[in-house]
Write a protein that binds this DNA or RNA. Structure first.
Length: 807
DNA sequence: CAGTGAGCGAGCTTCCGCTTGACTT
């Protein structure tokens, strides 16, 4: 047994540090927080100075037992959790739970996992910083109070099972407000003129310095210059410039770049990064620091010298911009920069390459650029054509890596290449002039990574919570990740060639299309409006920044944590009571107009199972008619026409084999109901226009598929069948499904044997019913269940492959 | 798996931040 026990947060970190420290040290991990406020109720005694009640988290009981045993046997326990607010609290909880003797306990910190950093830490231990611990307790308790007081208000006033919190509610607000801006946005049209010239024999594209507001102005300009033969060059300007590399990755910037360059979702990025980290290939992936260790700087310098030459190297140390950063770790970088490529699956390779390039580029020289601007007269005073060109004089870091931008419209960059040599007074011969009608764009919807960027700017959330927050607001059905198809609109284009006449064309384009963006749902908008109205201080974009300042004051010893909570809670709790007392239940009801057929009012509102439209009211003698909104429709924006369209379903198309064929939209999309059998419509089928013939085709297709599923029907009792399922053969009696016994042959086994094997009636062998599995999923946290789903999905694929090989 | 839409009431839900595990349908 070694004399020293070192406790860190992450097991991968423990492995590395153990190597640095040698045999006198045992290094263990506690897997993050070990104790939290009790799950039931507030866990905070408000009357008694906000005294918290903590309990050991269920999944940490085992590890705590082990750490307790080890700590008793050790001469010294080194608490080496992260050097930030949460890390300090973990050390304190550990010292309490493990009942550590202060004389035998030391607190050490390091913010990089390198040998010198660890050795330095061991030589400079300190005690637990209780100011920092209290700042964490204040943070934890405030979040609990906000979350557990706001959520029940929503259960009562909007819908059960909803949630609100300091972080998630502001995230939803950002998305809702952006969507409203988009709804209210009226595109304005303008007319852009581009000239194609020839200067000293080289073609040059130049754009007019002004955009016309009206077609009349634009055409009149074209008419004026149409007769001109050539234009003079008014000025030639050369401007040197430089571009600098971006800082190495933090969690947030990694998520953004992986989204732009690799198309990863934020949770996918974190999943892959976690694997790279566990394999020892990159440093810690949940960080807000852009700092690089001395070891890393040296290794990166060597790599640059070898790959590109020393003239490409420039040592740089970056500073974190975000105020809320706690910088307990390094930036995300390759553990061994000399490793350019790694083994692993395709995604691991791609993400590693991105991290490698970004890290290496961050230590490279600026790129030197020469920008040239040529101004060409237009024949109309104050208007002229401008051509810009950019030449890279020294490529520097651009040799390796360039950050992407979210800006999709690159049509404004009129030129980027080299321009011909020319001087003032030279002639620009024009070839053709083009005028194109354009429209202003609405502000863009948030992508997942874009939302993370915005949250980080506002100081809301932490590297470890960006991905879970995004999945929470989707799970609560406040927002959804969706794509929009857009609509067609027409625009005009004019073209005049030298010596020719002006020609006008009508063209078409798709507008309003969007891919994988966050869009608020009806529930999201209603909950947001309610929260903004009754809890404006919590929903304020500056709320987190304000309380963070106070947490800092606590950490610095200038503010008592209990005083801070008292000052916050009293007014906050009053707003909660006021909301419970004074607010109406939210129904989201909106009158759309009058039904021309019945003369009754048509309303859109939130029904028990989601958004609906309704004709007539429940007080009428005749029962009202209901229809669910389609997934892409919103209560806030649906029109009377669209609502009436929804009542055209279900459609009865006629008969097939003497039974009615009915088309409707259900929970799982459009379907056909015939003879009590449901058949899904294909992707290309529209339930409003599908014909009887096509329905019959689909019904027959389904029958064939059903038949293909059957492996065997038992003659003695045809209710019992062996079928082909997603996970191999399974047994059914028409009501319940059973697992097929592992080593049996489905074609030979007798029914008696089979019944014995599966132990029909024995519940253990049943597939778990829906409710049980939902409960199970709910127990685990948002991310872990997501990961679980993905892992299962992967295994399914594997299994499929292997069964295919066997057969 | 494919329905429903009133109202009541029992018993439940819920926060943010640290970290990674282990089902066999």
């Amino acid at each position: 047994m070694s004399k020293n026990l070192v406790i860190v947060e992450s097991p991968a970190k423990a492995k590395t540090i153990e190597k640095f420290l040698g045999k006198d040290y045992t290094v263990k991990s506690c897997f993050g927080h070990i104790r939290d406020l009790v799950k039931k109720g507030h866990g905070v005694d408000i009357e008694n100075n906000f005294k918290p009640t903590y309990e050991i988290q269920e999944d940490k009981i085992k590890i705590i037992e082990e750490l307790k045993k080890l700590s008793k046997k050790s001469e010294m326990v080194w608490l080496a959790s992260d050097e930030d607010r949460e890390g300090e609290a973990i050390s304190w909880h550990l010292s309490e739970v493990l009942e550590l003797d202060p004389k035998k306990t030391k607190r050490i910190v390091f913010h990089e996992i390198t040998k010198p950093a660890i050795e330095h830490a061991i030589k400079h231990p300190r005690g637990i910083d209780f100011n920092l611990v209290n700042a964490q307790q204040a943070r934890r308790i405030l979040d609990r109070l906000v979350g557990f007081e706001l959520s029940p208000v929503l259960w009562k006033k909007v819908k059960t099972n909803l949630s609100a919190g300091r972080v998630q509610s502001v995230a939803v607000r950002l998305i809702v407000e952006r969507e409203r801006e988009i709804q209210q946005f009226k595109p304005e049209t303008y007319f852009k003129v581009t000239g194609h010239f020839e200067i000293n024999g080289i073609p040059v594209k130049a754009e007019l310095n002004e955009k016309f507001k009206t077609e009349k102005e634009a055409v009149s300009f074209l008419e004026k210059i149409q007769s001109k033969d050539s234009f003079n060059i008014l000025s030639v300007e050369k401007k040197p410039g430089k571009r600098s590399p971006s800082a190495p990755f933090t969690t947030s910037t990694l998520q953004q770049e992986a989204s732009r360059k690799l198309g990863f979702s934020v949770s996918q990025t974190m999943l892959v990064a976690q694997r790279l980290y566990e394999a020892g290939k990159i440093t810690y992936m949940r960080t807000d620091s852009v700092n690089l260790s001395e070891t890393a700087l040296k290794a990166l310098k060597d790599v640059i010298g070898r790959e590109f030459g020393n003239e490409y190297h420039q040592e740089r140390q970056y500073k974190t911009k975000s105020k809320s950063a706690q910088e307990a770790h390094e930036a995300i970088r390759p553990t061994y920069p000399e490793t350019k490529e790694i083994d692993g699956d395709a995604n691991e390779k791609k993400l590693y390459e991105l991290i490698w390039k970004r890290s290496v580029a961050s230590q490279m020289k600026d790129a030197e650029i020469e920008k040239t601007i040529i101004t060409i007269e237009s024949g109309v005073s104050s208007l002229h054509f401008i051509a810009t060109g950019e030449v890279v004089v020294f490529d520097g870091f651009l040799k390796l890596y360039e950050e992407s931008t979210d800006d999709e419209s690159d049509e404004n960059s009129s030129g980027s290449g080299r321009l011909p040599k020319c001087k003032v007074g030279d002639i620009a011969n024009w070839q053709e002039i083009q005028c194109i009608q354009r429209f202003t764009h609405h502000p863009p919807r948030y992508t997942e990574a874009g939302l993370v960027k915005k949250l980080e700017e506002l100081g809301i959330g932490r590297p470890s919570t960006y991905a879970p927050t995004i999945s929470t607001i989707q799970k609560r059905n406040y927002v959804e990740k969706a794509s929009l198809n857009g609509t067609e609109r027409s625009y005009y284009e004019w073209m005049v060639k030298k010596g020719g006449t002006i020609q006008k064309f009508e063209k078409k384009e798709i507008t309003g299309a969007d891919r994988n963006k966050l869009i608020p749902t009806d529930i999201g908008m209603m909950v947001n409006d309610f929260l903004v109205e009754y809890f404006p201080q919590i929903l304020d974009y500056g709320f987190t920044a304000k309380v963070e300042d106070e947490f800092d004051e606590i950490a610095n010893g200038n503010l008592e944590w209990v005083d801070m909570l008292k000052a916050f809670y009293k007014p906050f709790h009053k707003t909660v009571e006021k909301a419970l007392d004074q607010s109406e239940r939210v129904s989201g009801e909106r009158l759309l107009g009058t039904d021309p057929a019945s003369g009754k009012p048509v309303i859109a509102r939130l029904g028990k199972y989601g958004p609906i439209v309704q004709i007539g009211s429940s007080e009428d003698e005749e029962k009202p008619k209901f229809a669910s909104l389609r997934k892409d429709q919103r209560i806030e924006t649906i029109t009377l026409e669209e609502a009436l369209e929804l009542f055209k379903l279900p459609r009865v198309l006629g008969e097939f084999e003497g039974k009615e064929v009915r088309v409707n939209i259900g929970r799982f999309g459009p379907y056909i109901l015939h003879d009590n059998v449901f058949t899904s419509l294909g992707k290309e089928d529209d339930p409003y226009s599908i014909t009887l013939e096509r329905c019959i085709e689909l019904i027959e297709l389904k029958r064939i598929k059903e038949k293909e599923k059957i492996i065997r029907i038992f003659k003695e009792n045809p209710d019992w069948q062996i079928l082909k399922g997603r996970w191999g053969p399974y047994v059914t009696d028409g009501k319940k499904n059973y697992k097929f016994p592992k080593n049996a042959d489905p074609l030979k086994i007798s029914l008696d044997e089979l019944l014995k094997e599966i132990g029909a009636g024995n519940t253990e062998n049943h597939r778990p019913d829906e409710k049980a599995s939902i409960k199970k999923a709910k127990k685990t946290s948002a991310t872990s269940s997501e990961i679980k789903e993905k892992k299962t999905a992967k295994k399914t694929v594997k299994k499929k492959k292997s069964t295919a090989k066997e057969s």
